[in-house]
Every structure is written in C-alpha cells, then in structure tokens.
C-alpha cells in the first residue's frame, strides 16, 4: 500500500517539475500556459489519488476518500475554464505570440472581422 501511494506522489512530483521547467523555458505566454496545464492535471491528480489510496487503506476513513475524489472532480471541471479565460483574455488584451508561430488562423480571422 505504501508503495502505491509513494509511486503516485512521485509521478505527480515529476510532472510538476516538468511543468515548472517548461514554464521557465518556453518563449511566450501562450506556450507557458500550455506547460502549466501539466502541473494542473497530472501534478494535482496524482497527489489526490495518492491521498485517496492512503485514506482508504491506511486510515480506513471512507468519508475522506469520497471527499478527496469529489475534490478531484471539481478541480477537473473548473480548471479548464480558467485556463481558457486567461488565454483568451490575454489575446484580446493585446498579448501576441512570438513571430515563429507556424500558423495563425485566429489572428487572420479576427482582423477580417474588424
């Protein structure tokens, strides 16, 4: 049991680390946000699952397991909304991606509308 919990938490720490490295390495704000979703998904879900397994098999507290899983569900539902809002808001506010973008359909279509 202890091994399963440790493996889950180590996995999530690995993904959180990769997310932070990505945030430091990426060139512009949009790609940085992509990298931060790494932390937001596997990083958090690993810890929540590890906690749930520990509460179920180590502490024998079913109430805590259910609460942790519901927490995970709410996290999954609400997180992408904020990511989408930040990304779109940044674009509308005038933050532009670096020049090296391969294609840029959104910009082209937005210019047409104006």
């Amino acid at each position: 049991m202890r091994i399963v919990v440790d493996v889950l938490i180590v996995i999530s720490i690995f993904f959180a680390f990769a997310g932070v490295v990505g945030m430091l390495r990426m060139p512009d704000s949009f790609t940085r946000m992509q990298s931060s979703t790494n932390i937001a998904t596997m990083g958090v879900l690993g810890v929540i699952l590890g906690g749930a397994v520990y509460a179920a098999l180590g502490l024998h507290e079913p109430v805590m397991v259910v609460k942790l899983l519901v927490l995970g569900v709410f996290y999954i539902i609400t997180n992408p909304i904020s990511g989408h809002a930040i990304c779109r808001g940044a674009y509308k506010h005038g933050v532009r991606p670096k020049e090296e973008m391969k294609c840029h359909k959104y910009g082209e279509d937005m210019v047409e509308e104006k």
Partner: peptide, 22 residues
C-alpha cells in the same frame, strides 16, 4: 499528452512548434 509535453519541456532537442489552428 502529459508525457509528450513533459518530455518537450525537459528535453532541449525536441522542438516546440506553436500555432493556432481552426
């Protein structure tokens, strides 16, 4: 997707190639 992005962040050789598609 998580593995892909994590490797892309950690490995300096793998390129990033961003863009907005419709």
């Amino acid at each position: 997707a998580n593995l892909d992005v994590a490797l892309r962040a950690l490995n300096p050789v793998l390129p990033i190639n961003p863009g907005i598609v419709k």
